[in-house]
Amino acid sequence: MRFMVIVKADKNSEAGVLPDQALLAAMGKYNEELVKAGVMLAGEGLQASSKGARVRFDDGGKRTVIDGPFAEAKELIAGFWLWQVRSKEEAIEWLKRAPFAGGAEVEIRQVFEAEDFGAEFTPELREQEERLREEIASRH
């Protein structure tokens, strides 16, 4: 099972305050444990929303671009991991070991797998998906 682990933004991350050396070192050690255990597939921190944008898709094909920053910091994402684990419980146990403090909030969401879509995900669509994943992997 794959899980997206979503680190919520706070006033510091939205203000562009970078972590100190102690937190960077602790996070590096934690990420190293995740990689050695075969759990971590990807992970990155994100710049503040002031450097981002949103695109709203309305009925009728209209697209509206909204430049950041965005008002509600607690609804924003400051970073993420993509983990491969056996269960949600295992993901939670790994997350409990993360070096966060100060009221940090992190969300865990299971990633859809091909089999979750049933018959609607036809053999042709599965083949296309596999081909695209192979193409992405070959570029890295």
Rank of each mutant, 00 (worst) to 15 (best):
M1N: 12
R2N: 06
M4R: 04
V5M: 13
I6L: 15
I6M: 15
V7R: 15
K11W: 03
K11S: 13
A15V: 01
G16P: 02
G16A: 04
V17P: 07
V17R: 14
V17A: 14
P19V: 05
P19D: 11
Q21K: 14
A26W: 00
G28L: 09
Y30A: 11
Y30C: 06
E33G: 07
V35I: 15
V35W: 09
A37N: 01
G38C: 02
G38Q: 07
V39A: 12
V39F: 03
G43E: 05
E44F: 05
A48H: 03
S49K: 10
S50F: 02
G52I: 02
G52N: 06
A53E: 04
A53Y: 09
R54W: 04
R54K: 12
F57R: 05
D59G: 14
D59R: 15
K62M: 05
V65Q: 13
V65M: 14
D67T: 07
G68T: 03
A71V: 08
A71L: 10
A73Y: 07
K74W: 00
K74P: 01
E75M: 12
F80Q: 11
F80L: 13
W81S: 12
W83P: 01
V85Y: 10
K88D: 02
E89P: 04
E90R: 00
A91M: 01
I92F: 07
I92G: 05
E93D: 14
E93S: 15
L95E: 03
R97Q: 11
P99S: 11
F100M: 13
F100W: 07
F100K: 02
A104E: 11
A104V: 02
V106D: 02
E107D: 14
I108T: 06
I108P: 06
Q110H: 06
V111W: 01
A114W: 03
A114F: 09
E115T: 04
G118M: 00
E120M: 13
F121V: 02
P123G: 07
P123Q: 00
P123W: 06
E124S: 10
L125E: 05
R126H: 06
Q128R: 14
Q128G: 03
E129M: 10
E130F: 12
R131M: 09
L132S: 06
E134K: 15
E134C: 06
E135M: 12
I136M: 14
A137S: 01
S138N: 12
S138A: 15
